[in-house]
Structures are given as C-alpha cells and as structure tokens.
Amino acid sequence: MLAEVDRLVPQLVLWRRDLHANPEIARTETRTTAFLTDTLRAHDIAVTDLPHTGLVAEVGAPDPQHRVALRADLDALPVPDRSELPYASTVPGICHACGHDVHTAVVLGAALALKAIEPALIERGLAVRFLFQPAEEVMPGGAHDLVDAGAMQGVDRVLAVHCDPSIDVGTVGLADGPITAACDAIDVTLTGPGGHTSRPHLTADLTFALAKLLTDLPAALSRRLDPRAGVALVWGQVDAGNAANVIPATGHALGTLRILDVEEWRRLDGLVERLAQEIAAPYQVSARVQHIRGVPPVVNDPSAVALLRRACSAALGDDAAVPTRQSLGGEDFAWLLESCSGAMARLGTRTPGGHTYELHQGDLVIDEAAIAAGARMLAVAALLSS
C-alpha cells in the first residue's frame, strides 16, 4: 500500500497545486467538490454529496465490523496570496493560508491507496470513510454539515491531520488530551446619538467607549475566569466613523474568544454580553453583543494517538512522531469527536533548516513532501484500525 501512495505522489502534488491556485472560501467550494467527485468516481469510489459543498466517500467492507473515518477540510481564507509561488492563488484576496489544500491531497491520496487494496479491507471487515468537509474556517463550521448528513453514523474512530509549519516535514506532532482551544466569535455593535467632536459632553462619545471596550473587555474576562483557562479575546476587525470631526452613531468590533479549558468555556453563558454592557454604560452608549459559540477543544483520545504513533513508525520511521502542545487555535474537528473517539495529528510542513512560516498568513509556503508523509501515515493508520 505504501508503494501505491508513493506512486501517486507526483499526481497528488499536481492536484494540490491546482487546488492552491484555485482556492474557494467557506461554503463556496464548488470547484473543489466537483474535482474530488470526478477523481474519486474515476477510481470507482462511491461518493455521497453533502447538501451544499463537500462530500463523503467510502471504501472497504459493505457491512464492516469496524469503520474509521479520515477527514479533510476544503476551504481557503479571505487572505491575499503573497507566496510568489508559480502556482500561487489566481483568485484575488483568497488563498490557502492554512494548508487545507494539503489536507485534501493527503486524504485523497490515502483514499486512492486504500481503494487499491480494497480486497484486503473487506477481508479484515474494515471500511474507511473519507470526509471532505466544507467551511472549517467559519462559525458554525462545516463539521455540523457532516453530522447533520449522517456522515458520522457507524464511525468507530475519526482521524485528521493539520499542517504545522513549526515542525519539520517528515515529522508528526502527537499529544494525548486537549490539542486545541475552544473558540467563539464575538461581534459587538455600539450605538449612540452621534454628534460633534467639539461637544462630547452633550452627546455620547461612542468612539471613546469603543476604545475602552476593546481594552477593558479582555481585561475583565481575565479577572472573571480562572487564569489557568488561558482565555484570550483578540480583536480582528474594528470600525467606527467616517470623519475626524464627527462622533459616529455606531461602532463595531469583531474578534475571537479562545479558552483552553472546556469547563470554563461551558460556563461563559451571558458573561461577555453583561461585561460589554457594563463597560459601555458610563458613556451612555448601548452595546449589543452576538456571542457565537464556535467549537470546544479538540481532545485526542489516547488510544487513537497510540494508533497514529504506530502508523508514524511504520510509514515514516521510528523517530517521526514528536511531542506537541495544546494551542489556542480552534478546530471544528472537535464536533466530530462528539460522535466517536479519534485524534488530530500535526503534520510537519517546514523544510529542515528552512524558514518557519505562520498559518493564516499569505506568505505561507509548505514543503510538499508533507503530502506523501500525511497520506502514508493516514493510510497505514486506517489499515491498523481493524
């Protein structure tokens, strides 16, 4: 089977480059879905469409004793491509800055390699399901699409990889327990009467109130939640006003709230809204808060991590598995783990001795040897699941 993965690698690299050059943001992944559908069907793999974008495919025993699922996410980010690669994004303002094109090529490679040994899967009573998920980068994410469509029914274990540009290609970061953080979206709108900047005392100084909220709300949360929970409210978008001498009537801030501890995350109900209103009240400005619950932490099952560790050794070498730590990143793979046990691995994408890139930045460059490494590991992990 590993020989089949290796045979596929040149084509997988070309497919990944095509995906990279033609990115699609969340819930618009129609071209990507069509490409996957055509490719899988060309290899005699049955495909089930999701209601909008994305798909589910499966190989192996029709009535399995055990079913493992491998998940890839399809969507890109609204980030301009600054990589200057020959296959850089051709879509203005959009690129695969999180490596989802690599995830897709990895799971596609595992699917085609496992299809090539399907008789062995049937003999083992094993089925492998491939979840090509849309809309990981938004809240609520496309993991709910999979669950609502019944894609997790009958699945005993689910596995995934996520690109990690901080570790070398050929290595895989593994850890038991929490590996990501809970992540929510916070959308705050302030409203007031507006007025002249020469007379802030006769109106409501909304811009000043917004500035206070931007600094005081994260500070207040850090004092209302257990410090060990690692709470971080960070603003990504702020806007108010159109003129230097006009106090605006509305202001807006959008950010993410991340928490390492799932219990503190569950206890958040209403707290952000109350604090925002209390901060705005002295300035006679009203605050409306949309607290959009996103994802709980991804919590890796130790038995699934042990499986991935064995797969790393068999597919990549005895030293391929390396330790990794919990991050403040959010991942809606966590919702799939509500249905069964599983784990997410961090796939090394850094060229040894090369530059360390950051995710969600337009200059991200991934060592394409990661495609072969990920496909080899996931294919072996699926086979070892029986």
Score class of each variant (00 low, 15 high):
62 P>C: 07
62 P>V: 07
63 D>W: 02
63 D>S: 09
64 P>R: 12
65 Q>Y: 01
65 Q>G: 13
65 Q>N: 05
65 Q>D: 12
65 Q>A: 14
66 H>R: 15
67 R>I: 01
67 R>W: 01
67 R>E: 14
68 V>Y: 03
68 V>R: 04
69 A>T: 05
70 L>C: 04
71 R>G: 00
72 A>M: 04
73 D>W: 12
74 L>R: 05
74 L>S: 03
75 D>M: 10
75 D>F: 13
77 L>S: 00
77 L>K: 11
77 L>E: 00
78 P>N: 06
79 V>M: 12
80 P>E: 13
81 D>V: 12
81 D>M: 08
82 R>F: 12
82 R>M: 13
83 S>G: 07
84 E>F: 11
85 L>Q: 15
85 L>A: 14
85 L>C: 11
85 L>F: 08
86 P>Y: 01
87 Y>L: 01
88 A>V: 06
88 A>F: 08
89 S>C: 14
89 S>G: 13
90 T>R: 15
91 V>D: 07
92 P>D: 14
93 G>H: 13
95 C>N: 02
96 H>C: 10
97 A>K: 11
97 A>E: 00
99 G>F: 01
99 G>C: 06
100 H>E: 00
101 D>E: 11
101 D>L: 02
102 V>G: 03
102 V>I: 15
102 V>A: 12
103 H>D: 01
103 H>I: 03
104 T>V: 02
104 T>W: 02
104 T>M: 02
104 T>D: 06
105 A>T: 05
105 A>E: 10
107 V>W: 08
107 V>K: 06
108 L>R: 01
111 A>N: 09
111 A>E: 09
112 L>T: 08
112 L>S: 06
112 L>H: 07
112 L>P: 11
112 L>D: 00
113 A>Q: 09
115 K>P: 06
116 A>C: 10
117 I>A: 08
117 I>M: 14
117 I>V: 15
117 I>S: 05
118 E>Y: 09
118 E>P: 03
121 L>Q: 07
123 E>S: 14
123 E>C: 05
123 E>R: 15
124 R>G: 02
125 G>A: 11
125 G>V: 08
127 A>L: 06
128 V>K: 04
129 R>P: 03
132 F>Q: 03
133 Q>I: 00
134 P>S: 06
135 A>Y: 14
135 A>N: 04
135 A>W: 13
136 E>M: 08
136 E>C: 08
137 E>L: 10
137 E>T: 13
137 E>F: 11
138 V>T: 15
138 V>E: 09
138 V>R: 10
139 M>C: 06
140 P>G: 04
142 G>M: 08
143 A>S: 15
143 A>V: 11
143 A>E: 02
144 H>R: 15
144 H>S: 09
144 H>F: 14
144 H>Y: 14
144 H>L: 15
144 H>M: 11
